[in-house]
Write a protein that binds this DNA or RNA. Structure first.
Lengths: 233, 233
DNA sequence: TCTTATTGGATCATACATTATTTGACGGAA
DNA sequence: TTCCGTCAAATAATGTATGATCCAATAAGA
């Protein structure tokens, strides 16, 4: 019923983006994040233009935008390639999350209103109700949960960085299932986090979020490792 | 003699960039960072193309790249504007630096070789020799100093983020002079940092770098504030 | 193996069509 | 007169199309 869209929920807006419904940029970007375009695959401008029924110009611009965002790599006179979203990539961005999210959380604890807490509890209720039955829904709810905490942060740069990383991690983790132990941990973390926020324990909440993000990142990494060794072996 | 170029010193390479000598991208970007293009100024494609003697196509691509990097803001059907590098912007990025640089430092302390330390001491020697006489040179040396520490970090994403932010801060601070107290503090911090690295005191070094970056950011912000109130008053 | 064509494709330059925004003139209403 | 809304021209953004040039990878030949 309520729509937990995978979009920058009001307040978080990709730097200078703008609502361009299903632009080529978004199409290519999703293809990369979702893994439909493989790592290091060449992005031939004319091909992409044809595939999406446009001229080359918009494609080139989209590729440059993606390059600026780090999803595409350019070599001079050799065009664009898909930046591999591999284990290193994932590790890099979740480690940055471990550094940034606690700071965002610390601020939120000092600013949280009753409405915020009610919203967090409502979302947590939905998360528990869903209980990982629908993984996609869990992902959206979980993102919404954290978004409540970060969306009003004064440091827009940090919030946008978080959001950008979040999107990547979400797309990657969509390929895997949560282990039972991870499920339990997520529930525990969220519940404890709400309690700490209620109690105004900014420092403890920040530490908890640090561990939470760390755990989440490790979990994804382990899934990736398992999946890649399975494929190789 | 030695060239401390303001370029991604080997190892740090803007994501997927590539050596494109003085491309339009770089020209526009520098115009923004250096303040030659004012905040929120419209970036009219045809104008830019004419000014730089190219066609509109490369300009459009450059603007998209800059958009992806956060230096330009797009509004649908209304084109591009210069993203204001104002106090909020500077605060945002130095705060992120405060979160990230200590982590980079902590790793470096565990990995530093004698050659690294020698290089740091050499650079610090040059910094003291220059003693802020040539501000530009100081900026380059200081950047080189920190680059030694971060350039080999395994987290390329974090290192690139640092570099990107560094460039902005450097450009902004170029407009101002170091206060005497800040000069002294920089010297103290660097010397103490070298000692901590020698002693392998990763945690203390990380804390020190956190304070150092914080101090540096505050210093720039205060200069900006002073300058803007002076202009307004 | 080394050198030389061939070719695919990137990059840039034009030219033009379409569409959205801005601006300013105009005319009517308060 | 002043304010307001409408309309149309001017301004650009955005997309299409095409040709020129140059680079890099590959194939062909010495």
């Amino acid at each position: 019923m309520t729509d937990f869209k995978a979009k920058p929920p009001m307040g978080i807006d990709a730097i200078g983006a703008s609502t361009e419904g299903a632009s080529i940029y978004e199409l290519i970007r999703d293809d990369i994040i979702e893994g439909r375009l493989k790592a290091n695959e060449r992005l031939v401008v004319t091909d992409l233009a044809q595939r999406h029924g446009t001229s080359t110009n918009p494609v080139r611009e989209a590729l440059q935008l993606l390059r600026g965002e780090g999803f595409v790599i350019f070599a001079p006179n050799r065009g664009a390639r898909v930046r591999p979203i591999d284990q290193d990539f994932v590790r890099d961005i979740y480690e940055i999350g471990v550094l940034i999210e606690p700071a965002l959380t610390r601020w939120f604890v000092g600013m949280a209103t009753e409405a915020d807490i009610a919203e967090l509890e409502r979302l947590q209720g939905l998360i528990e109700e869903n209980n990982f039955a629908d993984q996609l829904r869990h992902s959206e709810l979980d993102t919404a949960f954290h978004t409540v905490m970060y969306q009003r942060h004064y440091n827009r740069h940090a919030a946008e960085l978080w959001w950008k990383h979040r999107e990547v991690l979400r797309a990657v983790s969509r390929r895997f299932n949560f282990t039972l132990s991870r499920r339990a941990q997520v529930m525990r973390d969220h519940r404890e986090l709400i309690e700490l926020i209620k109690a105004g324990e900014a420092e403890k909440a920040a530490e908890l979020v640090g561990r939470h993000v760390e755990g989440s990142g490790r979990h994804i990494l382990e899934q990736m490792r398992a999946s890649s060794t399975a494929r190789a072996g």
